[in-house]
Amino acid sequence: ASVAVIAAGTQGNIFATSALRSMRFLQILRMVRMDRRGGTWKLLGSVVYAHSKELITAWYIGFLVLIFASFLVYLAEKDANSDFSSYADSLWWGTITLTTIGYGDKTPHTWLGRVLAAGFALLGISFFALPAGILGSGFALKVQEQHRQKHFEKRRMPAANLIQAAWRLYSTDMSRAYLTATWYYYDSILPSFRELALLFEHVQRARNGGLRPLEVRRAPVPDGAPSRYPPVATCHRPGSTSFCPGESSRMGIKDRIRMGSSQRRTGPSKQHLAPPTMPTSPSSEQVGEATSPTKVQKSWSFNDRTRFRASLRLKPRTSAEDAPSEEVAEEKSYQCELTVDDIMPAVKTVIRSIRILKFLVAKRKFKETLRPYDVKDVIEQYSAGHLDMLGRIKSLQTRVDQIVGRGPGDRKAREKGDKGPSDAEVVDEISMMGRVVKVEKQVQSIEHKLDLLLGFYSRCLRSGTSASLGAVQVPLFDPDITSDYHSPVDHEDISVSAQTLSISRSVSTNMD
């Protein structure tokens, strides 16, 4: 405001104040949320940038038409019409005319000016109207692209899951042992070998009828009888010197917790746990005396209480009078009846079946994303299906024409109403129809010849004498029936064969 007042002088105070007050009108834009329509302006900018070359070309040609039209109309009207006294007036008329506004304040009066105005109007309006069409088509394409992008975003994750499931299904095939990355992934998420051994031990116990592997080994086996189970490696608790092959000598807290839970599941009659010990102070733990958990001091820290809870689970003690015997301790020893080589084939089979199920689920979810969402998608899918159906029908028609023997030239002739090819031409065609016709002709010829021969033979049998045999009239074959199959017997006289037959029969009768 200060700059405006200084620039306008003393009389500019009122002007500056009114100008600043008129800017209050811009507050109405906040009512229509114009300040939060950044996406709309961004869309407009992207459309203009995408079609910038077309817009520049249309505007450039339109500007050239405007300059030439205004100049030529000015030359034609400057002497006869006072409205075109300057080139600026003519340029104003050209702008209003070519933009199809047409105020009518300035019009050419001479015939030359009117002809020039009409010609440049028809030429220039087309170029001035091009930017509107370019922007409209650009907006339509952009909206369609955003629509497809939205659908693509919805299909991206199911497609990625389907590709991942397909690759993992491919890589978990037993015949592709060189693909090891997927197996490394499952090695990292699978439970430890100790848990798998416990699982298979329970399965084997159920197969043995509820007997433990130790009891199965204690059962008497006759001499020479084959053992029911192959000899396997035996594993004891981590306190002993022997372990399962492939295990580490260090046992983690999870393994100890699972070991304690498995020992508690063996039965309360074979294992008696004394009350857990509780320390009397955060600094020292008295293991010899058993106290109640309700006497825990409230001033303990979080670490002390955590250690106390761990001691409740991981440090059970047995009383002296209830101490288990050596046999019970041997039964409680952890027996590992299986090795990694025995378990891994079954584990890989389970993983393979899981990968198949996940692949089928991913495939079903991806197919669900291909379903249409709204009416536009339904129409688009219907149009695509219609085009596909037309293509299939056209391909089927082409194959039928190839089989029947109607080529493209014959199809055009039928469409024009011309006469089709004759039967002889159809026979000569190298097509399925021509071959079928040729075979039918040959079969008819053979059938006719057989009928003639059978009739001749029956007449010979009825006559009974050589004289009557020679008097029999043998009809000749019709050459038209034989089609294109020409037998060497067709052109010979059958009477010669009949005479030869009669001579042979007379000779045979004389010999008798």
Rank of each mutant, 00 (worst) to 15 (best):
R364W: 02
H236L: 10
T180R: 10
R168G: 01
T318I: 08
I403T: 13
K394R: 03
S242A: 11
D423V: 05
R505C: 05
D493V: 05
D484H: 07
D377Y: 01
T294P: 00
M174I: 07
A384E: 09
D428H: 13
T241I: 12
P220S: 10
Q271P: 14
D388A: 02
Y382D: 14
V507D: 13
C235G: 03
R228L: 06
Y334D: 05
P222T: 05
L199W: 14
S192A: 12
S188N: 06
T294A: 13
L190I: 08
I393F: 01
S175G: 07
V350D: 01
L273Q: 14
C460G: 14
D401H: 15
R414P: 07
L196R: 09
I343N: 13
D451E: 08
L338R: 13
A471V: 06
T465S: 07
V426M: 13
R317H: 04
G470R: 14
S383T: 02
P213H: 13
V427L: 06
E326K: 13
L452P: 13
Q473R: 03
S497T: 11
S192C: 02
V361M: 09
F366Y: 02
S422C: 09
G417S: 08
I257V: 14
D377G: 12
A320S: 15
K298N: 11
T291N: 10
V507F: 04
V347M: 11
H448D: 14
R194G: 12
P421L: 12
K332E: 03
T318S: 05
M432K: 05
D377V: 01
I481M: 05
K449N: 03
E285A: 12
S261I: 14
F200Y: 13
S325A: 14
K270T: 14
M174L: 11
T291S: 15
Y382H: 11
A166P: 00
S463P: 02
V350L: 13
G246A: 05
Q286L: 04
S299T: 09
E321D: 00
T172A: 12
V437D: 12
S284R: 11
A467G: 09
G409E: 03
I403F: 05
L387M: 10
L214Q: 13
V474M: 08
K441R: 12
V375L: 04
R305P: 15
A206D: 11
S468T: 11
E337A: 10
A467V: 09
G455R: 04
V203A: 11
S445F: 13
M278L: 10
V439A: 14
G405D: 02
F456C: 14
R207P: 06
T509I: 06
E201Q: 09
V443M: 04
Q442E: 12
E447A: 13
F366S: 02
E289A: 14
I189S: 08
L370M: 13
D322E: 15
G407W: 08
P293S: 12
A274T: 03
A323D: 10
L396M: 12
S281Y: 15
Y382S: 15
E327G: 14
Q442R: 15
V340E: 11
E201V: 10
P276T: 08
Q442P: 09
R176L: 13
D374G: 01
K315N: 13
G385S: 15
V340G: 06
V439L: 11
S508T: 06
R307H: 07
E415Q: 10
K412Q: 04
L312Q: 14
Q263E: 12
P279S: 15
R176W: 09
A310E: 13
E492V: 14
T398P: 05
P316L: 15
S463T: 14
H491D: 05
D223E: 13
E195Q: 12
D512Y: 10
S353Y: 12
S299G: 08
L214P: 14
M251R: 10
S466T: 15
C235F: 13
D418H: 15
A320V: 15
G209W: 11
A290T: 15
L357V: 14
S497C: 11
I356M: 12
S171T: 12
T277P: 06
D374N: 01
A310S: 07
H272L: 14
E321G: 15
G209R: 07
R256H: 12
T241N: 06
I343M: 11
E425D: 10
D342G: 06
W300L: 15
Q204P: 08
T349K: 08
E380G: 05
Q444L: 08
A413S: 14
S495T: 06
V443A: 15
H202L: 05
A471P: 04
E289V: 13
S508R: 04
S495F: 05
T172N: 03
S249G: 11
Y457S: 07
S261N: 04
V489G: 11
K298Q: 15
S431G: 09
P421H: 04
T500M: 08
K332Q: 11
A424G: 11
A362D: 10
S495A: 14
K441Q: 07
N510T: 11
Q286P: 14
R168L: 02
R355W: 12
F456Y: 15
R399Q: 08
A206G: 07
S458W: 14
S249R: 14
A310T: 14
L312V: 11
L469Q: 05
G470A: 09
E321Q: 08
S422A: 07
E285D: 03
R265P: 09
V378D: 13
R371L: 09
H448L: 14
T266A: 09
T280N: 09
F302V: 05
I446T: 00
R212W: 07
L314P: 07
D401E: 13
R317S: 15
S495P: 08
Y382C: 13
P282S: 10
A197T: 07
P279T: 07
E330D: 04
N510S: 05
T180A: 07
I356T: 10
R309L: 07
S483C: 12
P275R: 10
G239S: 06
W167R: 01
Y229D: 10
I379M: 03
I189N: 12
E447K: 14
F308C: 11
Q402K: 14
K365I: 12
Y485H: 08
A225P: 07
S227F: 11
R218Q: 13
I393S: 00
I446N: 14
V328L: 10
R364K: 06
N303Y: 15
G405S: 02
F308S: 14
K412M: 03
L357F: 07
K358R: 09
T234A: 04
E425A: 13
C460R: 12
S445A: 12
K365N: 08
V437A: 07
R411G: 07
Y186C: 13
V404A: 06
I379V: 08
V404M: 07
L198F: 10
A329G: 04
I189V: 12
D480Y: 08
I354S: 07
V232A: 11
K449E: 03
A274E: 13
S262T: 06
T509N: 12
T509P: 08
Y229N: 06
K394N: 00
A233T: 07
E429V: 06
P372Q: 00
Q204L: 14
K419N: 10
G409A: 05
S504Y: 14
L338H: 09
L196V: 12
K358T: 01
G224R: 09
I351L: 13
V427M: 11
H491P: 05
P230Q: 07
G246W: 05
M389T: 13
R435H: 05
A197P: 10
F308L: 15
Q381P: 13
R364G: 12
A346P: 11
I379S: 13
R217P: 11
L452V: 10
P345R: 14
A424P: 06
D341A: 15
P191A: 08
V437F: 13
I343F: 14
S249C: 14
R313I: 05
A181P: 09
T234S: 12
K365E: 10
L450Q: 10
T318N: 03
P324T: 05
L450R: 02
